[in-house]
Design a protein around this nucleic acid. Structure first.
Lengths: 191, 191
DNA sequence: TCAAGTACGGCACGTGCCGTGCCGATAGGA
DNA sequence: TCCTATCGGCACGGCACGTGCCGTACTTGA
């Protein structure tokens, strides 16, 4: 009927669902493809036929979680829009199962170039582009300094978030996000 | 003679050296403790007796590389001192074998709490503290806004660096570091 | 509707590494 | 010199890898 058969689609869904389940229970590091296949009641080939690595399966399972769009609001106030958007991202990265799963995926990407490429293309870059686009709109309206590099602004917003998430492992509070935003807009030089 | 015997010390050194060698050749992901022991001409117990995990060995081997201190200069100009210091860190993170090894270690820390704790205690936190201490000195001298949170400033300096290093994987150029510094000091608001 | 083709679950295989136990050899300190 | 901790070497059971094969179930198109 559909381009991919009903049965095939069901298998794909079942495997990704099992991946998420088992991830929560066992911990995302100690997962084996073998265990996922066993739990899902599926042959190992059925997994290997669809994904080339554990990381690829991890990424797809992750993406299947947040089908709700992460498009920016545009209320006319950049700062408020950025704030609302980054709060949403911080909440997403905090809450299980997304948080721990995402952490594991970033780790996986560090030693698997294919996963790194896919993660960047399907998650990180779109997010970056939405941020830069919203900033661009704001600059056109005169809300921002005209000579400020918007890619850099994006990095200054994202960087400290990832830094907390991956390095210091402190909670990604709204307060922290607000501090970063304030600093970015206010600057640090002497008054 | 010493608290740890001569022989023991030699073994420790040999294992860490082999870890670094094999890391460069084989890739830091595909390393096995078994292979390290074999190459080093050492029994597996001799490794396991010293380190509880591959990540712990990775960390120690890494730390043995940069015994040169990373203390900040203090020329009286914070901005210049930060610039010089972060350039050094960026260079360190870029060049093999430190760069790829460090990447692998951060990945390891994402799913091994012990490694995460040790990495933070022995590498990340000291680096943070040195930065904050240097900023603190500068603030006392009136070089910085008195109400700016220095931990936040540190995060805004480190975050974008890690973001590039781990997420976008673009090169950590001096130019990029300078941009971040400029932005932090100048701010982004309309003129 | 039915034949051809494909995807499937189950099973087994060889390989590599894990972490541990046991051995006899070795070397350093009392 | 002797005593003891550490050593290298070897072997083990266990697990997961990725692949092959077999017989079955489903899908598709003539």
């Amino acid at each position: 009927m559909t381009s991919t058969s009903r049965r095939g689609h069901d298998r794909t869904e079942a495997i990704m669902r099992t991946m998420l389940e088992l991830g929560r229970e066992t911990g995302y590091a100690r997962l084996s493809i073998e265990a996922v296949a066993r739990r899902a009641g599926v042959g190992k080939h059925t997994v290997y036929r669809r994904w080339t690595s554990k990381g690829a399966l991890l990424l797809d399972s992750l993406l299947s979680l947040h089908r709700h769009d992460l498009d920016y609001p545009d209320t006319g106030d950049v700062r408020a829009d950025l704030r609302a958007q980054i709060h949403r991202v911080a909440d997403l990265m905090t809450a299980p199962p997304f948080g721990p799963l995402f952490r594991a995926l970033v780790a996986e990407a560090q030693h698997d170039p294919d996963v790194a490429t896919a993660l960047h293309a399907q998650f990180t870059r779109p997010q970056e582009e939405r941020t830069v686009a919203r900033l661009n709109t704001a600059r056109d309206r005169g809300e921002l300094s005209p000579d400020f590099d918007l890619d850099l602004a994006m990095a200054i917003l994202s960087g400290p978030l990832y830094f907390r998430f991956l390095i210091t492992r402190e909670p990604l509070t709204h307060e922290y996000v607000d501090q970063v935003l304030d600093a970015l807009f206010a600057g640090m030089g002497p008054r």
